[in-house]
């Protein structure tokens, strides 16, 4: 996996940066001082054992964390230099710019395949788009077009799990986000579907910034330019132990805990 940093000027991609992010659930401090810099057109993997706060961290990046009752937050998340937690920022606008794909495929069951792709535009009240064209380009980019082009009016949940997840990616792409966050997008899928989604991720990184949480270390090595290793030790809030180019994190980690984790000694 090459880790060239030369693609920064490409259209559509934005830089995303967190500064000293702390997260609480009620009184419980689950994430402490996470500062990460996500480069445009790069895939960044967040790895770490269960409960280390990586999924929670991901949800602070598009303000989904605050939907949980009792959620607390401190720090900054900067999208192209602008704090998405600023008092003048509508979280809806944040989520329009930063898309998300969830662990479990969650297409809208009452909608057809095509309607699912357009769901975000309907939900956000956007107008003036060419529906047919947008459905096709989005599904193509999520590499599912050929499988569904003749059944766009079928219910979305008639698709297989892997297809549903790619539909969810297409749904997110239809909003032309600058960043896409993926929360273990393949953990509920079979190896074939996983491979196809990984290929999609690599293709998409040409045009956007991607952050992916994964439990699968091979997956991190296959798709991610950079990798951050999260760890919550002995009841302490989760922290980033190591962050760097994926090949360095896996082959020559600077922290012994990273070394133990990537070599399967715990987690």
């Amino acid at each position: 996996m090459s880790a060239e940093m030369a693609l920064q000027e490409q259209v559509g991609a934005s830089s995303l940066r967190s500064e000293d992010v702390n997260v609480w659930f009620g009184e419980r401090h689950v994430l402490g001082g996470v500062s990460l810099d996500f480069q445009p057109n790069q895939v960044t993997a967040l790895i770490g054992p269960s409960g280390c706060g990586k999924s929670t961290y991901l949800r602070t990046l598009n303000r989904m964390h605050e939907l949980i009752p009792g959620a607390g937050f401190a720090g900054k998340v900067l999208l192209d230099g602008k704090d998405i937690y600023g008092s003048d920022i509508d979280p809806v606008d944040v989520r329009l710019a930063i898309g998300m794909v969830f662990q479990k495929p969650n297409p809208f069951p009452t909608m057809t395949i095509a309607e699912n792709v357009l769901a975000g535009l309907k939900l956000s009240g956007r107008r003036g788009y060419d529906a047919n064209e947008l459905v096709e380009t989005s599904l193509r980019r999520a590499s599912i077009w050929n499988e569904v082009k003749d059944r766009l009016k079928d219910p979305a949940i008639s698709l297989s799990g892997g297809q549903q997840q790619r539909l969810c990616i297409a749904r997110s792409l239809a909003m032309s986000p600058e960043v896409i966050l993926m929360d273990e997008p393949c953990s509920a899928l079979d190896p074939g579907s996983t491979r196809r989604i990984e290929e999609t991720i690599v293709e998409l990184s040409d045009s956007m910034t991607i952050v992916i949480v994964t439990h699968n270390m091979q997956q991190a090595q296959r798709v991610a330019h950079n990798t951050a290793f999260f760890l919550a030790e002995d009841g302490n809030p989760g922290q980033v132990v190591e962050y760097g180019r994926t090949e360095d994190v896996f082959n020559t980690p600077s922290d012994s805990r990273t070394n133990d984790y990537v070599n399967g000694h715990f987690g």
């Binding site: 939907l67 809806v92 989520r95």
Partner: peptide, 17 residues
Amino acid sequence: NAALALGGSKASTFLKV
């Protein structure tokens, strides 16, 4: 969550999802 993550407001999420 999917609806909100797609930029839905509380109202549109209620009405459309």
